[in-house]
């Protein structure tokens, strides 16, 4: 198995609160890796630290053989990590197509002069970006809404659009933060199919999810966070039996507050 991402002793504090403590984990190429844990456990914070939205105080990430620049989102995306957000964050004044086209930014080169002079290269790249974006909309199954403003899409379609936009950055690792949240059963099963397709097309997936059935059915391995610490990492069946995990999920009334 080939390592794609290795987190080594990641620590993140918010004032007095230790959101992540010494979190180490390894994600292999081609797998769907689940990250679960009660609300407030630090899952989203892990995403934020990984993708450069926050800078961790401790630790480092090794991605595809070399260290990731910490706190530099654009360079991290360039290295091949893309994410979606727990609370959908689309570009609301842009159409679905344009959202995905924006996602292609980092893989295109046209500069200011090229745009102003509309060189042949610029026009070709623009056409390519448009076509690729449309292909990705098809891939996630919302191409009929290509020209719809993203804010007018249904909730499920917005979730998928966010995935398409992330895929437009051509990631090696796709990090999804609770993609099934708020979806009905049909939408969830379509999402599951989509994630399986993404994996079989060669993209590794890091999945935060609350829907236990989805996680257990989809993930090759699962890590469990509780109070910012990793308390388990194993195949789903083992994790489900792990007493510490059961305790974290069932034992604590303190979690309900989050």
């Amino acid at each position: 198995m080939i390592k794609l991402l290795e987190a080594r002793g990641i620590g993140k504090r918010f004032g007095g609160l230790r959101a992540l403590t010494e979190v180490s984990l390894t994600i292999n190429k081609g797998e769907v890796y689940g990250l679960i844990g009660p609300n407030g456990a630090g899952k989203t914070t892990f995403f934020n630290v990984l993708t450069g939205a926050y800078t961790p105080e401790d630790g480092e990430f090794v991605f595809n053989g070399s260290e990731l620049p910490l706190g530099k989102p654009d360079r991290i995306v360039n290295r091949g990590i893309a994410r979606t957000f727990q609370n959908i964050r689309l570009f609301r004044e842009m159409t679905a197509l344009e959202n995905v086209m924006a996602g292609h930014f980092i893989r295109t080169k046209t500069g200011l002069l090229g745009v102003l002079l509309q060189t042949r290269h610029t026009r070709e790249e623009e056409k390519l970006t448009t076509e690729r974006a449309y292909e990705l909309l098809k891939y996630v199954g919302i191409e009929r809404h290509a020209r719809t403003l993203s804010r007018n899409l249904s909730y499920g379609d917005q979730r998928r659009l966010e995935i398409a936009r992330a895929l437009a950055t051509e990631p090696r690792l796709l990090a999804l933060d609770e993609p099934a949240a708020g979806m009905n059963a049909t939408e969830t099963s379509q999402l599951r199919t989509l994630i399986e397709t993404i994996r079989s097309d060669g993209t590794t997936v890091l999945l935060i999810e609350h829907d236990v059935k989805l996680v257990m059915g989809l993930c090759d391995r699962v890590a469990v966070l509780d109070f910012g610490k990793k308390i388990a990492e194993d195949v789903p069946a083992e994790v489900q039996r792990n007493p510490a995990v059961i305790e974290a999920y069932l034992g604590g009334a303190h979690h309900a507050a989050h």
Binding site: T51, G52, A53, P73, D74, I76, V77, N78, A82, R83, F85, R89, L90, F91, R92, E93, M94, E98, A102, G103, F105, I106, R165, A166, A168, T169
Partner: peptide, 15 residues
């Protein structure tokens, strides 16, 4: 437009 609509999301796609 991405920065205008959502700066955090704009960063997250590598802008």
């Amino acid at each position: 437009a991405a920065i205008r609509d959502d700066e955090l999301a704009a960063k997250a796609i590598g802008i």
